[in-house]
Each structure stands twice: as C-alpha cells, then as structure tokens.
Simulated assay, not measured.
Amino acid sequence: MTQQLYTNLAIFILSLLVGFEVMSKIPATLQTPMMSGANAIHGVVVVGAFVVAAEANNVGFYVLAFVCAFFAAINVAGGYTVTDRMLGMFDRPKNDTHKKDDGGEQ
C-alpha cells in the first residue's frame, strides 16, 4: 500500500469520527436545518460521481461512478422528502371555514 492510500484512509477515518461526534451533539430542534445542509453536501457527492465518470477509463470505473451517482441521488431525494415531512409537522391544522358550528348541539 502506498503512502497516498494511507493518507486517504486516515482522512476518511478521521472524518467518520468527527462526523459521528458532531451528529451526536446536535439537539432535536436543529435536525431539520441540519438535514437541509446535508442534502446540499450530497449534491456535491453527485457532482463528484460525475467527475469520476468523466475520468473513467475502464468499465469498472464507469460502474463505480454510476453506483455512486445513483446512491447519492437517492440520498438527496430521500433527504428532501424527510425534511418536507418534518417541516409538515410544524404546519398549523387547516380550519374548515365552510363548516357550520352549531354550538355543540346534536
């Protein structure tokens, strides 16, 4: 294994540890804004998959780029879906203004 590979593995492992610590310290009230930021980061992952595809020179790299782009796109779409559902929980209930209130009489 080369020195470059060791360096890349060290950076990857350190980013996993830092990410875990940061995510575990975020209170529940900040989860929705954090999810929106994570969606933007996953958009960058999609662009990175396109860069890998542009520099691919054999079938293995093309397959890897496709898989990366596919999973990143699913993650982006799922993140926005979850964020939308979470924000929907904060909507006020819609009052039916056409409903006649009879004062509780039956």
Rank of each mutant, 00 (worst) to 15 (best):
I74H: 01
A73R: 00
A65I: 07
N39C: 15
D91P: 00
N39Q: 14
D84V: 13
F20W: 05
I11W: 05
A69P: 02
N75E: 09
F70H: 03
L30G: 10
N57W: 09
Y62R: 11
Y62P: 06
L16W: 06
T81G: 06
F66H: 03
T81S: 11
F50T: 10
I13L: 15
I26L: 15
A10Y: 05
D91G: 02
Y80V: 03
N75F: 04
F71G: 00
L30M: 15
G88N: 08
F70L: 14
L16Q: 12
A40C: 10
V63P: 01
V47K: 09
F12E: 07
V18W: 04
N57D: 15
A10E: 12
V18A: 05
N39T: 14
A40Q: 13
K94M: 07
A49S: 10
N8G: 05
S36H: 04
V67M: 09
A72M: 01
A28H: 15
Y6P: 05
V67D: 05
S15D: 08
A72E: 01
Y6T: 11
G60M: 08
F70G: 01
A38T: 09
L30D: 14
L87N: 10
V76D: 01
P27F: 09
T32D: 10
A38K: 10
H42F: 11
V22W: 04
A38S: 12
D91H: 00
V59F: 15
V45W: 11
V63Q: 15
N75R: 09
P33Y: 15
T29R: 12
G88R: 00
L9V: 11
I41Y: 06
T81P: 01
E21N: 00
R85S: 09
A73N: 07
I74Q: 04
T29V: 08
L14S: 13
R92K: 06
V47E: 03
S24L: 11
P27W: 07
V47N: 08
A54F: 10
L87Y: 02
A72K: 01
C68S: 12
E55V: 03
R85V: 14
P33G: 12
N8D: 10
V59K: 09
K25D: 02
I13A: 14
F61P: 03
A40M: 06
M89D: 13
A69F: 00
F71Y: 13
M34F: 06
A28M: 12
V46C: 03
S24G: 03
F61S: 10
